[in-house]
């Protein structure tokens, strides 16, 4: 009797832990983490999207980033969603939002309130309005201070950059 019960527990354990394996847990980070991502140079493509749960245009373009992650999961595409929500709303707002919307991409909440100290380091042309997106492919960096209005618009930028 003991044996099936332990299998039962094991199944419970695996089914419970699975989503955590699939989805990287959201984390609170300082700018140094983002800065090292921005200096990331490898043969994989990095897409960093700056957003917030309260930002309507950000939320409406999120599905396109999720779709990108889904469609290019086998290829070398790394997607990171940098939340600019307030740190105190991480548990009460950001985490529930991620769960409710089944966000599969990695979410990092950037806790660095002196915006002026780091905006230029992301891109000198960025005014600070969100959404904003950085694409890094090898030595090439592209910056977009805009909302993507369709999945195709986003994919058309990413597709040619992926090394086959």
């Amino acid at each position: 009797m003991k044996f099936p019960f332990s299998i039962f527990i094991l199944i419970l354990f695996i089914s419970g832990i699975q989503p955590q394996i699939l989805n990287a847990q959201p984390k609170i980070v300082k700018f140094s983490t983002i800065d090292s991502l921005l200096h990331h140079r490898s043969d994989s493509l990095l897409v960093i999207n700056f957003w917030a749960t309260w930002c309507k245009p950000c939320v409406s373009e999120l599905p396109y980033f999720e779709e990108l992650k889904k469609n290019y999961s086998s290829e070398k595409v790394k997607l990171i969603l940098v939340s600019l929500d307030f740190k105190r709303e991480f548990e009460s707002r950001v985490k529930p939002f991620i769960e409710k919307n089944n966000i599969a991409s990695e979410v990092l909440l950037l806790d660095e309130p002196d915006y002026n100290s780091w905006i230029d380091k992301v891109d000198a042309t960025w005014s600070g309005a969100i959404p904003a997106t950085v694409v890094i492919a090898g030595s090439k960096k592209m910056f977009f201070e805009k909302e993507f209005i369709s999945y195709a618009e986003l994919e058309n930028i990413i597709k040619p950059l992926i090394q086959k």
């Binding site: 700056f50 930002c55 245009p57 600019l84 915006y115 002026n116 905006i119 230029d120 960025w126 005014s127 600070g128 309005a129 969100i130 959404p131 909302e147 209005i149």
Partner: peptide, 13 residues
């Protein structure tokens, strides 16, 4: 510079 909401421009949506 600061993070902020975008000004909602006519015809952008």
């Amino acid at each position: 510079k600061a993070i902020g909401c975008t000004i909602k421009w006519k015809g952008t949506k």
